[in-house]
Amino acid sequence: MRMTVSILLICDDSSMARKQLLRALPADWPVAIAQAANGMEAMAILRQGQTDVMLLDLTMPEMDGYQVLTALQSEGLSCKVIVVSGDVQEQALQRVMALGALAFVQKPADPDLLRQTLERLGLLANSASELAVQALGDDSAINFFDAFREVVNVAMGRAAALLARLLGVFVQLPVPNVSLFEVGELHMALADAQRGGGLTAVCQGFIGSGIAGEALLIFHDSEVGDMARLMSGFSSDYSEIEMLLDLSTLLIGACLNGIAGQIDVQFSQSHPIVLGEHASIEELIKLNRPRWKTTLAVEISYSIEGHHIHFDLLLLFTEDSVALLSNKLAYLMN
């Protein structure tokens, strides 16, 4: 006896993430598939009342996964939800389960683990169906920026999970921004981020398989002391400089390792250096203008929930690195 064909909704702002999920789905699962690029699109589909199962991302623009789960509860809509996210903080798992999700799957979804999850929840057919998910998938090519943004999304989630465990906090994650800048445009972008206050930054170079760049961990001066106190606990001997160096080693290292693991490279990192302590953005740009030139810039803006602490992680890849990254990502983009 065959299972009645179900409707599966894949909700993720990344076209590459949706494509990865389509590839990871069991080929013998008889489902019709709908896709949504954010929570608002998903809710419009869910309100039609025909969706049986949803694979839901958490970090999205317009309306994130937490808001979708909350809306499902408040509107009394029935849909079995499996969260598929790069935000692997323990609190993220606890929160989505409390909001009604049935399971949590880490990005990128492993096909075997996804099948096991679907089987455990009783969502798979007992026998194969001619309605294979591959026939319903989207075979369109993925552009470089979307592919790399999704790789960064997974990496930043792993870095946040390390910080969350260390400090016993919840780290609020953004949608990462990936852009190609000339040095003048980068100057303007950083100046806008400064919002009139002084900045303190830690710089750390990296290189691997010809892919090279600089990582910058940037704090507004007013928040450096707050972060130092949070990381030091009750120790009065932990200086702000020690905090900056330790935090940069943790976050930059974890983020680069997360990227490296997905594109099969190994990055070597230089020792972190505090750039222009309490310097203006103009001083930071002047110090680094010869190295940045045209750069692929990745911006991740972290926030610590319950604290007035925000900081930016910038990964600045050299112009020559873009072609090498494209080659590494080719198998994900096609």
Rank of each mutant, 00 (worst) to 15 (best):
L46I: 13
E62H: 10
L315H: 09
Y238M: 06
S239L: 05
P111D: 11
V133E: 12
A109W: 13
V171H: 04
H278V: 09
L329F: 03
L180C: 09
S236F: 05
I259E: 01
D221S: 15
L332E: 04
G196D: 07
F148K: 03
T294E: 07
M63Q: 10
F267A: 01
F234L: 10
M243G: 04
E150W: 12
G210I: 12
V183K: 15
E240H: 00
N334S: 00
A279T: 04
E283F: 10
H271M: 08
H271A: 13
T51Y: 03
L118Q: 14
L316F: 08
G213C: 12
R158N: 13
E75P: 04
L136P: 09
G65E: 11
N177E: 15
R195W: 09
K328E: 00
I285T: 05
I309Q: 03
G276T: 15
T295D: 02
L55S: 00
G276Y: 00
D246C: 09
N126I: 10
D139P: 04
V151R: 00
S326M: 10
I10P: 11
L58F: 05
A98K: 04
I259W: 01
G225K: 14
S301M: 06
L55I: 01
V84C: 09
S232V: 02
L325A: 12
F219Y: 15
E242M: 11
K286P: 02
L8Y: 10
L256H: 11
A37W: 12
Q269Y: 09
D146A: 00
G196Y: 12
L324H: 08
I10S: 08
C79R: 02
I211Q: 08
S321I: 08
Y331E: 01
I218P: 03
M54K: 05
L251P: 05
G137Q: 14
A201F: 07
L166H: 10
E90I: 02
Q35S: 05
Q20D: 02
F104A: 12
A279Y: 13
E242S: 08
V83P: 04
Q48L: 09
F181Q: 13
A147V: 00
H187C: 08
G100N: 02
L77I: 10
Y302K: 00
D264H: 12
H278C: 12
L329P: 02
M231N: 12
A128G: 14
R18P: 03
F170A: 09
V83T: 07
V68F: 05
I207Y: 12
P30R: 11
L58Q: 01
L72N: 01
R18K: 00
T318R: 14
E277N: 14
G137N: 15
S232M: 03
F317N: 04
L46K: 09
R195P: 00
L77V: 03
Q269H: 05
K80E: 14
D146K: 04
S321H: 14
R2P: 13
Q269A: 06
M3H: 15
V84K: 05
P61E: 04
L275V: 15
V5N: 08
A155H: 02
M63F: 02
L58H: 04
R2I: 13
S280E: 10
L99T: 00
E214I: 15
R2W: 02
A201K: 09
